[in-house]
Write a protein that binds this DNA or RNA. Sequence first.
DNA 1: AAAAATATGTTGCATTTACAACAATATTAT
DNA 2: ATAATATTGTTGTAAATGCAACATATTTTT
Lengths: 154, 154
Amino acid sequence: MYKKLKHYTDTLNYELEKTARVMRILGIQLMEKLKIDLMLDEYVALDIVSCHQGICQRDLAKLIIKDRANTGRILNSLEEKGLITRFVDTKNNRLVRKMAITEKGYKILISINKKVESYVAETKRVVSEDELDGLYLSLKKLREKLEEMIELKI
Amino acid sequence: MYKKLKHYTDTLNYELEKTARVMRILGIQLMEKLKIDLMLDEYVALDIVSCHQGICQRDLAKLIIKDRANTGRILNSLEEKGLITRFVDTKNNRLVRKMAITEKGYKILISINKKVESYVAETKRVVSEDELDGLYLSLKKLREKLEEMIELKI
DNA sequence: AAAAATATGTTGCATTTACAACAATATTAT
DNA sequence: ATAATATTGTTGTAAATGCAACATATTTTT
């Protein structure tokens, strides 16, 4: 009888997907509430570029977990808004488009981070920081193991 | 200096999204590998219907975290395949479309669960069961708190 | 009693996303 | 050296997804 089986809603898989979804919605709602004129994904990309100056598109794609096509489009938007610059360079002797955050992008990123900071503090009131840290570490460990099992075509 | 700030890739948010993504890809790849002739979401919906016989569409939508439109479409597909039946009933004096799993759907669900089971055992080799359980509980707690903060328009 | 709000499901559309094909170049194999 | 393979980015397209609008019916408010 499969009644004894764990159903999907009782699985880690489900909880993960649902939590990630809720977190994403929270993020999007926060961007709107704070009247931040960037898509969430653009903000994420901008933040990653800021601490990986000179990263190439494909490596960025791996970090933001989008395919190359969409990563390119996100970067087009950031470039049009003058928040990043792109330039051709080489990586392993190959021509790649690298990018860096601009002065303007930097200022905007800081202002967003400042706005977001107080909100993050709020989240910590909800669940203890220790618990969040433990959660983070467990997730990271699990994710790294799981990543070895799949083939990401990015 | 925002160098002292936590960057997005170091946040729980990022880890959550990435882990969920990896898990979903694993799920989809598993469905293909096992030659299961259902979309992952269809399987999830079927499983939930199986343990919530007579659930209505909107309640199901909340469980599978899709909007009502897409939930309806998933159910159309399951119905066309003869895996569920839908019927009109009332809920709080309102007419709703409820559904139940069919004999055929039941058989297919069991066969899929059997196939998946051995794979789930594999996952447990990767990270200890205790750790997975702890992760699950922390996630659930966090998610339930976060859910209070957002408004899901389903 | 009439009007407004709520609950449910469907349809249509616009956005997002992924995937496949291509172009250009570099590396590796034959 | 030539061919095959791999890396990177772009373009085009198809699928997935969400959202707004609608239809219907019921509850709540005025």
